[in-house]
Design a protein around this nucleic acid. Structure first.
Length: 498
RNA sequence: GCCAUGGUGGCAGAGUCCGGCCGAACGCGGCGGCCUGCAGAGCCGCAUAUCGCCGGUUCAAAUCCGGCCCAUGGCUCCA
């Protein structure tokens, strides 16, 4: 009945109580637009999507904001290779990211704000921090003074002493404390900052640096610091206090820690009530496992995977483990996800087919089936309410699939029970988890393909009737090579398009 | 070094917050059977788990407490 979520701030599962009983403000720390999205990003996206969907299913109006960080050294490093200047490079990657999100069937956020469009708000927030004594200017840059913020380190569970010990005293001598972080950075981008992110064909650092964006500010020409953007955009598009802030676990420190410090120092309010962190994706190399990351170059892109396996397999892979446990990306893991997805999809189709068949008797009531539907709904809800446990939720759905398959094995059919099963799968698997079930609503191309397969299968039936199994099997193999799966049943051959 | 997370069957992965229904779910893979021209799908059944190690609390522990070992992530590029 009550939704509970693991809050990084406390490290505990807490009852979720939004500020407003029917609205949830959710901010997702989006991507830096300097690389294509990989499956690590996709897994995070997919889990946030499941959260978004479940919150809506529970009746909340979800105001979801996801930013694009389009001002960053890594983007500048792409100048010449992916665009003529920082803005052009960012634009190109943003278009690709949006395409990826669409292909994954993600619920749209209300807005996708960009750093470059919020410089005013960022400067205003920095000014407020300086005025309030939380930040200081040094050489045209502005730094946040961590000693002024009492709770600094609360999210990552570190004390200021520990953090100071970690800082590199050699760098940034104008900082008062090694743990202080930049809110505003003087000047443009230094070529050496670009050099380390340079890719093959990128422009030489000096040339790229010239094409970096800079803005006027009370402290002179410069660029926003890394963390301030999210604070500015979250408060601008949502509110000073939001309900849920989600992001990858790799952002806990320093990014989220700093967001809290600067936001709360600026507004005097709690920045986010619940901090949820998605675990990272790992890749197995010859020697060890390491996280999938753009900078390590060990990634599989979203577009590539969607092309090869489809969005539902990607989703099944992502949701087959809880959002806060790490996942391994491998061919074997994808194969398993594909099998799981197909079992779910086939179960749904079996229910639909049975319901449409003459064997769906009007008076039969199959108690086990009806009970299974009720159990599935209850178990699914309990699982999602328990910290968005998508794995358990999927278990409930696959249990229902088993019940459907058992019921469908023998006629007559309980059409009302089947209807309930279909509705449960559509609302739970479809709406709440975002799978695209029975998306047969294809256009003319799909219908033509179906008609063509029917023609081939008719020829195959002829061959089978003649006992020419060699030819029949060859036709089936040829269809299989095209991704068309053929199955012989009592009612004749059935097929599924790829 | 500091912080965090995790160690459950061949694989993957729930359960650990709130001890007993867990001799441990769902799925993948393996084996056998039903069905079938064959295959696939589906159904039924079987085999693999002293739940990282040691100790403690308890009538009862995968679940609580203490210690240890190991793995991964973070420690100012990162979802």
């Amino acid at each position: 009945m009550t939704l509970r979520v693991t809050n990084t701030l406390t490290g505990e599962k807490e009852v979720f109580e939004p500020r407003d009983e029917d609205e949830v403000l959710l901010y997702y720390c989006g991507l830096t637009t300097s690389d294509p999205a990989h499956m690590g990003h996709a897994r995070s996206w997919l889990h946030v999507d499941a959260m978004h969907r479940w919150l809506e299913h529970r009746g909340y109006d979800v105001r979801h904001v996801e930013n694009f960080t389009d001002v960053n050294e890594k983007i500048v490093a792409r100048v010449g290779e992916a665009g003529a200047d920082e803005a052009a490079v960012a634009e190109r990657y943003i278009a690709a990211l949006i395409e990826d999100m669409r292909s994954l069937n993600l619920k749209r956020a209300a807005v996708y704000p960009r750093v470059s469009e919020h410089i005013e708000e960022i400067i205003a927030m920095v000014e407020r921090l300086v005025e309030a004594g939380y930040a200081y200017e040094a050489d045209g840059s502005v730094y946040f003074d961590v000693t002024q913020f009492e709770d600094y380190g609360a999210l990552s569970n570190q004390t200021l002493d520990e953090l100071e010990a970690q800082g590199d005293p050699a760098e940034r001598s104008e900082k008062r404390n090694p743990a202080d972080f930049a809110l505003w950075k003087a000047g443009g981008v230094a070529p050496d900052a670009i050099a380390e992110h340079r890719h093959g064909e990128a422009a030489p650092p000096e040339a790229a640096a010239d094409r970096a964006l800079t803005w006027d500010s009370p402290w002179g020409e410069g660029r926003p610091g890394w963390h301030i953007e999210c604070s500015a955009m979250s408060t601008t598009h949502l509110d000073d206090t939001i309900d849920i802030h989600v992001g990858g676990r790799d952002l806990v420190f320093p990014h989220h820690e700093n967001e809290i410090a600067q936001s709360e120092a600026a507004t005097g309010r709690t920045f986010a009530r619940y901090w949820l962190h998605t675990a990272l994706v790992e890749v197995e190399t010859d020697e060890e496992t390491e996280k999938m990351s753009s900078s390590l170059g060990n990634f599989e892109t979203v577009s590539g995977l969607v092309r090869e396996r489809g969005p539902n397999v990607a989703r099944m892979w992502a949701l087959s483990a809880a959002y806060n446990t790490e996942a391994v990306f491998s061919t074997a893991a994808l194969d398993e996800a594909e099998e799981r997805w197909e079992r779910l999809e086939r179960g749904y189709e079996a229910a639909v087919d049975a319901c449409d068949s003459p064997a769906a008797g009007a008076t039969v009531a199959d108690e086990p089936l009806r009970e299974a539907v009720a159990d599935a709904r209850a178990d699914f809800g309990a699982a999602m309410d328990d910290d968005f446990n998508t794995r358990e939720a999927l278990t409930a759905l696959l249990d229902l699939v088993g019940a459907v398959n058992r019921h469908v094995a023998e006629e007559p059919y309980d059409y009302r029970g089947l209807r309930r099963a279909i509705e449960a799968l559509e609302t739970l698997a479809g709406e709440a988890l975002g799978f695209e079930l029975g998306d047969a609503g294809g256009g003319g191309d799909v219908r033509l393909a179906e008609d063509l397969v029917d023609v081939v299968l008719a020829a195959r039936e002829d061959a089978r009737d003649r006992g020419d199994y060699e030819r029949a099997d060859r036709l089936r193999d040829d269809l299989a090579a095209l991704g068309v799966e053929v199955q012989d049943t009592d009612e004749g051959p059935e097929f599924r398009l790829p």
